Amino acid sequence: MASAPQPGRPRDPEIDYRVLAIARDHLATRGYEAMSLAAVAAEAGTTRQAVYRRWPTKADLATAAIAAMSRAAERTPTDDPYADLLRELRAYANGVGRPGGVSLVGTMLVDATDPQLVALYRERIVTPRRDQLRAILERAREGELIDADADIDAVLPMLTGAYYASALAGITPADDWAARTAALAWRALGGEAR
């Protein structure tokens, strides 16, 4: 059964794309606090009302802009959980390594940060990434590639946290960060060195 037509003009997907791209740029260059929906709308060549219809709050727009960069759905599981882990960590490093990526994560840890922003960030960015990593490691356990009693819960925050810890120490993660992190976690979980 076809759904009833919606009133008004149909949404223009090009506006969505432009607004999200400009919002990402503003986040990277100005930070969340200085990002303005009005400025994003003006630069995108649309109205504030059009932006507010799509993303009713600044937190909604900011997290939607970040989540739109994800290509997780394109990374379908293979029969090699180790290769999947490595691919996921490379994608993570590419994402958080973008300009402003680490500083945006730091914003989520500030007590004064908008609670809606933190909740949406966790829902749209953190939880899907953790779920993806957990699924990979669970498949490795089911395939007896890592120990049956491997402590996946302990390893999950280490996988991504190592990148942040390096950034906080003023160390730019090496190009082979993902490979080294995957190998270390794999061995810690009882997998054979790769």
Rank of each mutant, 00 (worst) to 15 (best):
S166E: 14
A140F: 11
D60L: 07
R130C: 00
H26L: 00
Y52D: 15
E123L: 10
M69A: 12
G45C: 02
T46H: 07
M35D: 05
D111S: 14
A39E: 13
A112E: 14
T78L: 06
T78M: 10
I146S: 07
R90L: 01
S103G: 00
L109D: 10
D12Y: 09
R180I: 03
Y92V: 03
G143C: 04
L145S: 02
R18L: 13
A41M: 14
A62R: 04
R54W: 07
A44L: 05
D175A: 13
G100H: 11
A91N: 12
L86A: 06
A44Y: 01
R87I: 00
E88I: 11
M35N: 05
T47E: 02
W186I: 11
A65W: 03
R11V: 09
G95M: 02
R11I: 08
G190L: 05
V118E: 01
L133D: 08
T57E: 02
A179F: 01
P56M: 00
I125A: 06
L156M: 03
D153L: 02
R187V: 15
R98M: 10
D114H: 04
R48G: 14
A91R: 12
G190M: 07
V102G: 08
D60Y: 05
I22Q: 00
V105R: 11
A23L: 10
A44S: 15
R180F: 01
D149K: 07
R130Q: 13
D25R: 13
R194W: 09
L159T: 07
E33M: 07
E43G: 02
T181A: 12
A83T: 15
I22H: 04
R54T: 11
L86K: 10
Y82Q: 04
D147L: 11
A41E: 14
T160P: 03
A34N: 08
T107W: 06
A169F: 05
D176G: 06
T76D: 02
P81T: 04
Q49I: 09
N94T: 04
P115L: 04
A188L: 15
R124T: 07
T181E: 09
Q6D: 04
T113F: 06
R187T: 15
G100N: 10
L184P: 03
E14G: 13
G101S: 00
D79L: 12
G8R: 10
A73K: 11
D16N: 05
Q116D: 12
P7S: 01
V96Q: 03
L61D: 13
V19E: 01
A188P: 00
A178D: 09
R98A: 14
L156P: 09
S166A: 14
E88S: 14
G100S: 06
E142I: 01
M158E: 10
R180H: 05
Y163R: 12
E123V: 01
A83L: 15
A28D: 06
D60V: 08
A64K: 12
G31E: 08
A2E: 10
V51H: 12
A165M: 08
D60C: 05
D147E: 11
L133Y: 12
L137Q: 03
L37C: 13
E144R: 15
E144Y: 11
V110E: 15
N94S: 11
A178P: 09
P5S: 10
A38P: 00
R30S: 09
R130A: 06
A2D: 11
P13L: 07
A41K: 15
A135S: 15
T76L: 12
R18S: 10
R30G: 01
V105N: 06
